[in-house]
Amino acid sequence: MRRVEHVMGFPVSLRVDDPGVPESAADAVFAWLRDADARFSPFRPDSEVSRYGRGELARRELSADLTEVLGLCAHYRTATGGAFDVRPPGRPFDPCAVVKGWSVQRAAALLTAAGARRFCLNAGGDVITSSGPWRVGVRHPELADRLCTVLELTDGAVATSARYERGDHIVDGRTGLPATGLLSVTVVAPTLTVADAVATAAFALGAEGVGWAAGQDGCEVFAVDAERRVLRTPGFPAVAGERAAAA
């Protein structure tokens, strides 16, 4: 099964290699992602997130899903000493850094429930794999036609935070200024919920974020700092013989 749709502002591609998994499983994945976008996008004025951000909804009135997302946001804000903040100084409430990974991980759970065992779900470059091995390329932070490295995943997720797609969009919540200490940071974790949030939080922390991310449970890290030095944890699952090409 193959399916590609544009959802949540980026292309989402799905590949399922198991015979007999019904097309309805893919239908459910994309229906959920469209629903998540409608409910949690800060760019939609009628979304639950936008209404909460404007103060139109009290905490007790929120859905269980948004309450869960807010709990994750609070966790990473505390864990980073405020560097990761979905309401940074002078900016509106925006939980996208948590919502993306969380919602795509939920989509992967729908696939598993439908009987899929070997699949790859790629949401704008953030990837969930099952029953690999699968190979995932990490884009060079400055050269769009080159890769920094290629990693191999069996069951897990990988997410990258960088400046190359949206510029200086990640803010250090402690200062309210764009985070510029890293060019890119890639995190491998058991779930995309963790990988995406940790990658964004590490980027917000700047140079200290690499060590912080490496200390998170189950996380392996590959990063390029502002001086174009490559930093990686020993367990980062790069394909054997693959040499980093960031410098």
Results as ranks from 00 to 15, higher is better:
P95I: 15
P95C: 15
P95S: 13
P95L: 14
C96F: 12
C96N: 15
C96D: 13
C96H: 07
A97I: 08
A97N: 04
A97Q: 01
V99D: 10
V99E: 08
K100Q: 12
K100D: 14
K100T: 08
K100Y: 06
G101V: 06
G101F: 03
G101A: 05
G101N: 05
W102G: 12
W102F: 14
W102V: 14
S103Y: 09
S103G: 12
S103D: 10
V104E: 08
Q105S: 14
Q105G: 13
R106A: 10
R106L: 11
R106P: 08
R106C: 12
R106H: 03
R106V: 12
R106D: 07
A109N: 13
L110A: 09
L110D: 11
L110Q: 03
L110P: 11
L111K: 00
L111S: 03
L111Q: 07
T112I: 09
T112S: 11
T112V: 15
A113M: 05
A113H: 05
A114K: 00
A114T: 01
A114C: 02
G115F: 11
G115E: 12
G115V: 13
G115S: 13
G115T: 06
A116T: 09
A116V: 07
R117D: 14
R117H: 14
R118P: 13
R118Y: 09
F119T: 06
F119I: 12
F119K: 08
C120L: 15
C120G: 04
C120T: 11
C120Y: 04
L121G: 06
L121I: 09
L121T: 02
L121E: 08
L121D: 05
L121K: 03
L121A: 10
N122V: 09
N122D: 15
N122A: 06
A123K: 00
A123W: 01
A123D: 06
A123G: 13
A123P: 12
A123L: 04
G124S: 09
G124K: 01
G125C: 06
D126S: 09
V127C: 01
V127W: 07
V127L: 00
V127G: 05
I128N: 03
I128A: 07
T129C: 13
T129P: 08
T129L: 08
T129V: 13
T129M: 11
S130K: 01
S130P: 05
S131K: 02
S131H: 11
S131I: 00
S131A: 15
G132P: 01
P133T: 07
P133D: 11
W134S: 01
W134G: 02
W134E: 12
W134P: 04
W134H: 04
R135S: 10
R135F: 01
R135M: 05
V136M: 05
V136Q: 03
G137A: 00
G137Q: 00
G137R: 00
G137K: 00
